[in-house]
Design a binder for these strands. Sequence first.
DNA 1: ACTCCGCATTTTTTT
DNA 2: AATGCGGAGT
Length: 783
Amino acid sequence: MNSFDEHDAFAAAVPLSQRAMAARPTPYLDDLNPAQREAVLALDGPVLMLAGAGTGKTKALTARIVHLLTTGRARPNEILAVTFTNKAAREMKDRVGRMLGQVEGLQWMGTFHSISVKILRRHAELVGLKSNFTILDTDDQLRLLKQLIVAANIDEKRWPARMLAGLIDGWKNRAWTPAKVPASEASAYNNRGTELYEQYQDRLKALNATDFGDLLLHVVTIFQAHPDVLAQYQRWLKFILVDEYQDTNVAQYLWLRLLAQAHKNICCVGDDDQSIYGWRGAEVGNILRFEKDFPGAVVIRLEQNYRSTPHILAAASGIIAANANRLGKTLWTERDEGEKVRLIGHWDGEEEARWIGDEVEALQKGTRRIDPQGLDSMAILVRASHQMRAFEDRFLTIGLPYRVIGGPRFYERLEIRDAMAYFRLAVSPEDDLAFERVVNTPKRGLGDKAQQDIQREARAQGLPLLDGARALLARGAIGGKGAGQLRAFVEGMDRWHRVTHQQGHNHIALAETILEESGYTAMWQQDKTPEAPGRLENLKELVKALEQFENLQGFLEHVSLIMENETEEAAQKVSIMTLHAAKGLEFPVVFLPGWEDGLFPSQRSMDESGLKGLEEERRLAYVGITRAEVLCTVSFAANRRVYGQWQSALPSRFIDELPADHVDVLTPPGLYGGGFGAAGMASAMDARVASADVYNSPGWKRMQDRAATRPVSQPRETRHVTIDLDAVSSFTLGDRVFHVKFGYGAVVAIEGDKLDVDFEQAGLKKIVARFVVAAAAADDVPF
DNA sequence: ACTCCGCATTTTTTT
DNA sequence: AATGCGGAGT
């Protein structure tokens, strides 16, 4: 039975239950507000649902699907519903299931990538692949590129493989096959980018492999070159729904447009203010241009927010208003006013982590104005993943349970990738990349020399590496102790491969056998490094994950697309994640640390993409604030350790953009949360705290008490310095001239245009972090 | 063939 | 601070 029959056979089986559904009432509509209802009922042409944060777009999207099904307009397998993450797809499926009972056959609901794989497996031969092609991850991709770079005699130091990978990725995102890369890109990668791109694609084809970008690009290529295939899908997929449309790239846009061309029934949901994947090729332009791309489109705005309090909403709106390029919408809510967004400055990143840890505990106990909060309801959202460490460190020392979301991904771990390579090789013995990865892992005495021999032999005979190795062994051309071990390896692979073909074999047992007999498990058992036990744990988890699949093939196919760590523990924990990972989530309590210029907005983003980059950073700020339901706290630190170096910074420019009426500037806790907060605020927030009587504030007293019980590691110096604000660009201390790059710190009081800094009272550790010394010896501090 | 050590480079975000 | 690489040494 070919795949077309499969689809139609399934379609024929559906109508019965369809009729049953049609008789049901429509409670899903009663639940919606007018705008949402309109979005559900506009079924005659293209629809753009502009859904701001927290406006119930998933609800509307789900209702639309339910509506299509209940009214019998579409069978489950005629609905194409595309999301960006597996999680979002799962959630949508769950919600539809909850409303209609388990719905069978929503087979076209998934991510762009997973749906593309499904399509590509059916038509792989049209782009020169076999339907059992493998999907390379970044690591494999990089190794492949490195080989090509070396072969092309390019100095990999000056022209790193990562750069080429990024370049190719960008081209694929724009749906450029090697032939279509415009001449203007010719200079890329030392004039050899396009050439290498072509070689890379050839190599992938030879390996029967694709990378992530290919999944989409190949499908687009097939659709463009084979109208009959396209027509087939257009016939099947009568209704298209797209989530997070603002994050689509050119390839995804073409993919959608080709499919929607015939019936034009496409409903895209998105929020231009939440487009945060520009660096991945996302084109905000896609959503801004929707009405032009799909003539006759209905645009519906969802503006009632059900998530956040008015203060939080106003703060977010205030920030995003500074962006020029947006469709614009006004979010409103009926919720109670609630707390203002809190803003606080800290002396350094460690103090920030301490303070947030304390806050979390206080909120948990209910010693704040809002109700006691479970740890699950709190999240810390950071700009860059390295910021998470400070929180992990702190939370570990105070014993606060936390979970890191989107950390180093399970399936990207060394041991998991090794194990997977074994599985891949057992399933498809021609998987050369897998072979390369594991021939000598664990060590089998096969060094560069032996591996090169295998490569040469395989190439000479046009065989996969595994067979090349076999041939060498047969000829007795492999010397020494490597030979015996290689033979065992090859024979093991043959054995395991045969098992994969046995009907009804136990794939879990097989996986265990492979890891056992190959000596892989033993390798880690003998390893004495501290991380070895954890790795063995992970391998166990990997085997456990197999239970959800019927065989190794099925598992491997999914794993390459599932990048999320799926383990959901029941225990209450604070979540720590990046802002990017937080999109689509919501939490009653949100902390947004690290709002310092250069870190957030990220310097690199601004350098590389200028105003466009800054606007994307601003959208990221918007996403962050709008995650919060009742309490949102923004913070920054005057000093932060970056790559082991202390650096100082100014509060983020986004802090200036927070509307003062909706922000509570917290009194700096004193001592280590020194006056920088006050000073920074003074400029940022209209001098409102300039006169704050820090010494008499409860916060100061609390900090003094705390200082007694929690000593600082760094010694404190006593020094009184007065800096003239007018001459703040440079000043002299002793016989050295200091140039002030960033603003002032540790302000205890502002008097006229002088800064009076009492280092003893402010508890300063050292001042190097705040002034950049002109001389090279920056760490030689005179204070 | 493999291990160890010193030097260099690095990090924004991820399907 | 942490990792990766190349080269020297075993």
